[in-house]
Design a protein around this nucleic acid. Structure first.
Length: 92
DNA sequence: CGTATGACGTGCA
DNA sequence: GTGCACGCCATAC
């Protein structure tokens, strides 16, 4: 890191974060949907890739699941993600 | 610039 | 219904 400041890189990542941040509690969004909302319906690959490399506590990435209904993965542990989804879903 | 990787998605056997 | 292989886009090196 040559610079202390982070790059304002306005890229797909920003859109993905913005979309994921809008996901209401107890609701899950598919990677494909996120990619579509982000502007690239075929970039669901990049969506997962970005979330995986850039996990942020402000981003409910645990609400992003596969179109198959599977949780997919989670930086903190798939088990944790499943539990969070279940809890939020119950509360909702 | 080209190659490699990845929390995916869809199609086919 | 399950499993395997290919294709897709964005990022990193």
């Amino acid at each position: 890191m040559t610079n202390f400041i982070k790059n304002p890189k306005k890229s797909f990542q920003d859109k993905v974060f913005y979309v994921v941040r809008q996901i209401p509690k107890g609701k899950t969004l598919a990677y494909k949907q996120v990619a579509k909302l982000a502007g690239s319906p075929k970039a669901f690959r990049a969506v997962g890739n970005i979330l995986n490399k850039n996990y942020d506590p402000a981003i409910p990435c645990h609400r992003v699941v596969r179109s198959d209904g599977k949780v997919g993965g989670y930086n903190r542990g798939v088990e944790k993600k499943k539990k969070l989804l279940e809890e939020e879903k119950k509360e909702s």
